[in-house]
Write a protein that binds this DNA or RNA. Structure first.
Length: 578
RNA sequence: CGGGGCGUAGCUCAGCCUGGUAGAGCGCACGGUUCGGGACCGUGAGGCCGGAGGUUCAAGUCCUCUCGCCCCGACCA
């Protein structure tokens, strides 16, 4: 491809709304252009990288036995009523209506459609298992789209769905696809980790996320350096916390604590550790307010709480709601003497405490010397703890480390959530009808490319891993008015093209400085410079974007040298993946 | 949903407080000198100042409404 005929316009200035480096570089290198909040055009240079990833994904999905199809982006509301998600999915679901006022959604995911397809076509255990996937545009109306392609509203996603007679068959496919995902991210040369995850709004039992390690990642993850345990903090567990010493008093006593509404203030005022205070948070659940108890120095994991209540849409209660539920203003709620109707859920971190401090359910007062058995009614015990770095690994003696990651893939064992509600059944060898077991497997295409840039860049611009690079080679002609240089560049371009090398040929009539800086910005892995000076010696310059090391090679036979460098680079990625 | 900020040339921004003929840098076009790490000189094109309404002799500037974009928060008691 000749740059002079290509659609690639770089910019020196960063658009004001680009915050993270991948977004800035994608805009500056002419990969994407924003059309509206969270909605982007993929320009030719960016599209090539996305296409590269999609080919890797197709190859590995096929290897895992999945079959490609393509489903509609616009889906009738009836399917979503059937699955119940018209209600459950919330405001992220973009709803539309047609000229007849019939309701539709722009699909954020395709469980309903695929289940509808399969329930019509598949009726026998002999047709199972099957795995289907598509690569398609999705729309989720995010509260706050940001970071360019990392959290867009419209985005490209590979989504796969598998159908099975039973759990065992599902487990086999789940494992095959898990391995396919590992191969995909390894093939891209990304530093990633697989973690245990919460299954959230999609539903189901078992789920893993694939995280690309990056400081700008939106997800917090813990990992044990001693064993292979890794989990999203939404899901992460730890061992029982070491019990703090019992508080100084053992008899229940009300003490004045004017104005002390935070754990820190109360602990300071009463001269106890924050771990000897119990925090009472009131959440609004599906059946009204719920009081939750957690040790004062720790925090409640709302995802765990939602899961234990069996309700996706919980929120912290408003001050007025807290007062109505507990009779106390914000900051003084406590588990002693709560109204009988108010459900109390306690985190396990509270269990070993003795002689602790809680709010007194009246303004400016707390109880000290609280005893769990004697003074507190707990309806349910649960693991509600937000786990973080430094906590004990639940599997071994290690200590968890915390880091941030970009969620690029998420796989779920769905079970029969959709097949049951939508009547996707098969007949077994006894002629009996059963709901199919399902799995679903998502992989963010744009997000993965953005993640690759987060991991691969320097001050000059993008440093592409070879497998995702829009072009393998940038052929840079330094003097476009020098006949020898032009002739040698043209010939090299022809030879490389014929040899099947993906080459971008910078034949633009620009100054060298401009070309070099653009070369760094767009990050093509192997740069070839043809300039008058070295051409006199019959030589051209090769350099890797990654290392910036330069070497001179003879023009004659240059194609072979170039192919060798590319092979070495390719081997580097696949050789050290994972 | 709450709070804040910003919409002026393709891009980044100034001008608005204190109303009076629309600006800069980069980019773009043309001419010249340059040419292995974002050159220099000269000339030029390009804007109904997001939209609507109002105040005024006069609005980019003041007022009201509206649309868009960005950031922060959404209560850890």
């Amino acid at each position: 491809m000749r740059w002079s005929r290509y659609y690639l316009f770089t910019t020196r200035e960063v658009p004001r709304d680009a915050e993270v480096v991948s977004h800035q570089l994608m805009v500056r290198s002419g990969m994407v252009k924003k059309l509206a909040a969270g909605i982007y055009s993929y320009l030719p240079f960016g599209w090539r990288s996305l296409a590269k990833l999609m080919e890797i994904v197709r190859r590995e999905m096929a290897a895992a036995g999945a079959v490609e199809l393509s489903m509609p982006a616009v889906q009738p509301a009836e399917l979503w009523h059937e699955s119940g998600r018209w209600q459950d999915y919330g405001r992220e679901l973009l709803r539309l209506s047609d000229r007849h006022d019939r309701d539709f959604v722009f699909g954020p995911t395709h469980e309903e459609v695929i289940t509808d397809i399969v329930r019509h076509d598949v009726s026998s255990y002999r047709q199972l298992p099957i795995s289907l996937y598509q690569i398609q545009v999705k729309f989720r109306d995010e509260i706050r789209p940001r970071f360019g392609l990392m959290r867009g509203r419209e985005f490209l996603m590979k989504d796969a769905y598998s159908f099975h007679t039973d759990d065992a068959s599902l487990a086999v496919t789940y494992e095959e696809i898990r391995q396919a995902y590992c191969r995909i991210f390894e093939a891209c040369g990304l530093d990633y980790t697989m973690v245990e995850a919460d299954s959230g709004a999609i539903g189901g039992s078992h789920s893993h996320e694939f995280m690309v390690v990056a400081e700008t990642g939106e997800s917090a993850v813990v990992r044990c350096p001693e064993c292979d345990y890794a989990a999203n903090v939404e899901k992460a567990e730890t061992r029982a916390l070491p019990a703090p010493p019992a508080g100084p008093e053992s008899g229940l006593r009300k003490v004045p604590t004017p104005g002390a509404t935070s754990v820190e203030e109360v602990a300071a005022l009463l001269e106890v550790a924050t771990s000897q205070v119990v925090k009472t948070l009131v959440y609004m659940g599906p059946d009204g307010p719920v009081a939750t108890l957690v040790r004062g120095d720790r925090e409640v994991n709302e995802v765990k709480l939602a899961a234990s209540l069996g309700a996706p849409g919980i929120r912290l209660a408003e001050p007025a709601e807290v007062e109505e539920a507990t009779g106390a203003p914000l900051g003084f709620a406590g588990p002693v003497g709560l109204p009988d109707g108010l459900r109390v859920v306690a985190d396990e971190s509270v269990r070993p405490l003795a002689g602790f401090v809680v709010g007194a359910n009246e303004a400016d007062a707390h109880y000290v010397g609280v005893d769990l058995e004697r003074d507190v009614r707990v309806d349910d015990w649960a693991d509600l703890l937000l786990v973080g770095g430094g906590d004990a690994c639940p599997r071994c003696d290690g200590k968890l480390e915390e880091f941030r990651g970009i969620e690029v893939g998420h796989i779920f064992m769905l079970g029969d959530k959709y097949s049951k509600s939508m009547g996707c059944t098969y007949l077994d060898d006894q002629g009996e009808s059963h709901a199919m077991q399902m799995g679903c497997y998502g992989l963010g295409i744009g997000r993965t490319v953005a993640a690759a840039i987060e991991q691969g860049h320097d001050d000059g611009g993008i440093v592409w891993p070879l497998p995702l690079a829009p072009f393998e080679v940038l052929l840079l002609s330094l003097q476009t008015r020098n006949e020898e240089v032009v002739a040698a560049s043209n010939q090299l371009y022809d030879e490389l093209t014929r040899a099947g090398v993906e080459v971008l040929y910078d034949d633009r009539d620009e100054r060298p400085g401009v070309k070099f800086n653009d070369a760094d910005l767009i990050g093509v892995p192997l740069r070839i410079v043809v300039g008058a000076r070295s051409l006199k010696e019959g030589q051209i310059e090769l350099s890797l974007r990654r290392t910036k090391e330069k070497e001179m090679v003879a023009v004659d036979g240059a194609v072979e040298s170039i192919r060798e460098r590319l092979e070495a680079e390719r081997a580097r990625v696949t050789g050290s993946g994972g």
